[in-house]
C-alpha cells in the first residue's frame, strides 16, 4: 500500500492505495467520487475523463500513484444540481444527454477543449469530442451544446 496525497476539486485528500490501483477506481472507491464513470477500462470510451493538472486524461489509463501530488478536477467540480455550470446548463437546454453515463467524461473533455481551443466550426467541435463515445444521443445535441458555449466566450 502507498499513501497518495492529492488535491481533488480544490480539497486535499490522502488515502491508501495498492500500486496497481487505477486512478478511476481510486476516485470512485476510497475518495467516493462516483461521478467519474468507467465504461471500458481500456482507454477508448472516454467516460472516465478527468482533468489532471489541467489536462484532460483518461483516469482508467492512469494509476492512482501517478496522481500523487497532482491536482485533479472531476465532474463534481463543475456545478451542483441546484446551480449548474454554464456548460451543464447548455447540455440540459440542448438535450445533450440521455442515459447520462458518458456525460461526466463529455463534460470534462469539453471543459478542456473550451479552455484551450477556439472551437469555431462544427467540424472542430466534432473532432474535439471524437475521443468520447456516446451510444445514446448520436452526438448532435452534444455538439450543439458545446458550440453554444463556445460562442458565448469572449
Amino acid at each position: 500500500m502507498t499513501t497518495i496525497r492529492l488535491t481533488v476539486n480544490g480539497e486535499q485528500h490522502e488515502a491508501e492505495a495498492e500500486p496497481r490501483m487505477l486512478l478511476s477506481d481510486f476516485l470512485r472507491g476510497p475518495l467516493g467520487l462516483t461521478g467519474t464513470h468507467v465504461g471500458c477500462e481500456h482507454g477508448v470510451c472516454g467516460a472516465c475523463t478527468i482533468l489532471l493538472d489541467g489536462a484532460s486524461v483518461r483516469s482508467c489509463l492512469c494509476l492512482a500513484v501517478q496522481a500523487d501530488g497532482c491536482t485533479v478536477e472531476t465532474v463534481e467540480a463543475l456545478g451542483t444540481p441546484a446551480a449548474l455550470s454554464p456548460l451543464q446548463e447548455a447540455f440540459r437546454a440542448h438535450h445533450a444527454l440521455q442515459c447520462g453515463f458518458c456525460t461526466p467524461g463529455m463534460l470534462m473533455t469539453a471543459t478542456d477543449m473550451l479552455r484551450n481551443h477556439p472551437l469555431t466550426t462544427e467540424e472542430e467541435v466534432r473532432e474535439a469530442l471524437s475521443g468520447n463515445l456516446c451510444r445514446c444521443t448520436g452526438y448532435q445535441h452534444i455538439v450543439d451544446a458545446v458550440m453554444a458555449v463556445a460562442r458565448t466566450r469572449a
Binding site: 470512485r28 467520487l33 462516483t34 461521478g35 467519474t36 464513470h37 468507467v38 472531476t74 465532474v75 463534481e76 463543475l78 456545478g79 451542483t80 444540481p81 441546484a82 449548474l84 451543464q88 447540455f91 440540459r92 437546454a93 438535450h95 444527454l97 442515459c99 447520462g100 453515463f101 456525460t103 461526466p104 463534460l107
Partner: peptide, 21 residues
C-alpha cells in the same frame, strides 16, 4: 413542449446513481 428533463441535474453533476455506484 420541449420540457427540460428532470433527470438532467443529477446526471450532469455526477449525482446519478448507477449500479456500480
Amino acid at each position: 413542449s420541449r420540457v427540460p428533463r428532470r433527470e438532467d441535474p443529477r446526471l450532469l453533476t455526477g449525482e446519478g446513481r448507477f449500479v456500480a455506484d
